[in-house]
Computed example of a mutant assay.
Amino acid sequence: MRRATAVGVGALLALAAVAASSVEDAAAPGDEAGTRPMPDFLGRGLWRVFTHLDRRTRLDVHDVSGRDRRVLWPPRWEVCTQYPAAGTVLDRRTTVMIGVVRKGETCPPRVRDARR
């Protein structure tokens, strides 16, 4: 059981490395200075966050359903909250915070109200 978990995590890290390298190849013009505007991830899959942010961006992902689950497989999660807001310029010191729920679940009411 322990080995299967290690293999699963290794596969996830390999996929993330491939996605990060492909994103770097298609870098936006603002990347030379190390700044980019924050994309709008609300309602999108968590995998999009990993593929659209620079690999050096500090990222804090947490479950906002109240169940305090660990987020292990990004394709199974959907973004409910994000900080900073879309359009905010990201620099190397910015920590991006993403609140997620499992796909198919609805965002908690207090989270949906904060999105408006």
Rank of each mutant, 00 (worst) to 15 (best):
V71E: 08
G87S: 04
E32L: 07
D60S: 15
A114H: 12
P29H: 03
R102K: 14
S21E: 08
P39C: 02
L12F: 05
F41K: 10
H62W: 10
L42N: 03
R70N: 11
V111K: 03
L13F: 00
R2W: 08
Y83R: 15
W73M: 10
T81M: 13
L46S: 09
A28Q: 11
V96Q: 07
T57Y: 02
R70Y: 09
D60L: 13
S65Q: 05
D54E: 14
D63F: 10
S22R: 14
P74V: 01
T88Q: 12
R93V: 00
L59H: 04
W47Q: 15
A27G: 06
R93K: 05
P109M: 06
E105Y: 03
D68A: 15
D63V: 15
R116W: 04
F50I: 08
V49D: 04
L72D: 14
D113A: 15
A26H: 04
R69Q: 14
G30C: 05
T106V: 11
R92C: 03
Y83C: 01
A33L: 07
V61C: 06
Y83Q: 14
R112I: 12
D40R: 07
V9Q: 14
C107P: 06
H62R: 15
R3F: 14
R102H: 12
S22G: 06
T51L: 05
P84E: 07
E32A: 04
A17E: 09
R2V: 11
F41G: 10
V7S: 11
R112C: 00
L13T: 14
G10Q: 08
G10R: 10
A26E: 05
G8K: 12
A14M: 13
P29T: 02
E24A: 15
T81G: 10
V79N: 06
V96S: 03
R92W: 01
D54R: 15
R36F: 01
C107S: 11
G45Y: 00
R67Y: 07
L15H: 09
V23L: 09
P37V: 03
D25Y: 08
T88N: 01
V100Y: 00
V64G: 10
P84M: 06
E32D: 11
A16D: 12
P109Y: 00
R58S: 15
P37K: 02
P75V: 07
P109C: 01
R3L: 13
A28W: 01
E78H: 01
Y83D: 15
V96A: 01
P109T: 13
S65D: 02
P84Y: 05
Q82G: 03
V64I: 13
W73D: 11
D63Y: 09
L12W: 02
V96P: 07
L46F: 01
H62I: 08
F50Y: 06
Y83A: 08
R48K: 13
A17K: 08
